[in-house]
């Protein structure tokens, strides 16, 4: 099976974020990491390849810095990478991002495309499904298991409140992967070395521009959410806080 994994670079979970001058996006001088569900998507692709053979290709869209997620993918075992490299890709909505991906891979024949189920930055939860529709392929979302079978695959979709559902589907298909589907591997030293010699194809904005349209939704502004609830904050040294808290547990919460 030939599998494409869409990976996104997002700010590190603990990174303190600041707004840019226009208040429409964050300042980009923060540390970044792979969007977590995308890491699980990559791991799943590698496991499928180990079981059934084939090829794993990683793709991302973003400025030069985002090449790091492709390097990580290659170091963990992906065979090649595609980088849609331009700072402008960061501002695309899900529809245009999917269009850009579709344009960049139109010469290739994938059996499966994986994305993470949503990104930690925008959190649209849409790019994979939109991509499926653009490709004309079936899709399934929030996937927790994938088994190859005659004529296609059987997937396990997570539903709400602890329920799951099996779905049979034909290939090619797009799947959005849920965190926790597998256990992530670490890149090995050899892997990191080998990654340097693996093919990485760059695609410019100009090459895909004719496939894109104007964004159909616009971020007017970004801001720190207003607090609506009055939280009582306890302050002091750890010992003082512990004492205050136990008082509250006794007298207000009444669990002691």
């Amino acid at each position: 099976m030939k599998i494409l994994v869409c990976m996104k670079q997002v700010p590190q979970k603990d990174a303190p974020l600041k707004l840019n001058e226009t208040g429409t996006w964050i300042r980009e001088d923060v540390s970044y990491e792979v969007n977590e569900p995308d890491a699980y998507a990559l791991e799943e692709a590698l496991r499928q390849k180990e079981k059934h053979g084939g090829e794993v290709v990683v793709i991302t869209a973003g400025p030069a810095r985002s090449q790091q997620v492709l390097r990580e993918g290659l170091a963990k075992g992906a065979d090649s990478a595609i980088h849609l490299e331009d700072p402008g890709f960061v501002g695309l909505d899900a529809f245009n991002t999917a269009k850009a991906f579709a344009a960049a891979i139109k010469e290739e024949n994938f059996d499966l495309i994986f994305t993470g189920l949503q990104s930690d930055d925008y959190g649209y939860a849409q790019t994979g499904v939109v991509l499926a529709e653009i490709m004309g392929w079936p899709h399934a979302t929030i996937i927790m298991q994938i088994d190859k079978q005659d004529g296609g695959i059987k997937v396990k979709r997570e539903l709400e409140a602890g329920f799951f559902q099996h779905v049979d589907m034909p290939l090619p298909a797009v799947l959005t992967i849920q965190s926790g589907i597998n256990k992530l591997r670490y890149a090995t030293l050899i892997g990191i070395k080998q990654a340097k010699n693996k093919p990485l194809r760059k695609v410019t904005m100009d090459e895909v521009r004719s496939s894109l349209g104007d964004n159909m939704q616009k971020i007017e502004k970004l801001y720190i959410p207003q607090k609506t609830k009055k939280t009582e904050m306890l302050t002091g040294s750890p010992a003082e806080i512990a004492k205050q808290l136990v008082e509250k547990l006794k007298n207000e919460v009444r669990v002691l």
Binding site: P11, K13, L17, L19, I26, D120, D121, Y122, G123, D214, N215, M216, Q217, K218, I219, E220, K221, L222, Y223, I224, P225, Q226
Partner: peptide, 20 residues
């Protein structure tokens, strides 16, 4: 009509409008 949604895992809120 502006829709408010969370971004960056709730660290920010965003006002989003339709352009098309």
């Amino acid at each position: 009509l502006i829709f408010v949604r969370q971004m960056f895992q709730g660290k920010f809120a965003a006002d989003v409008s339709f352009a098309g």
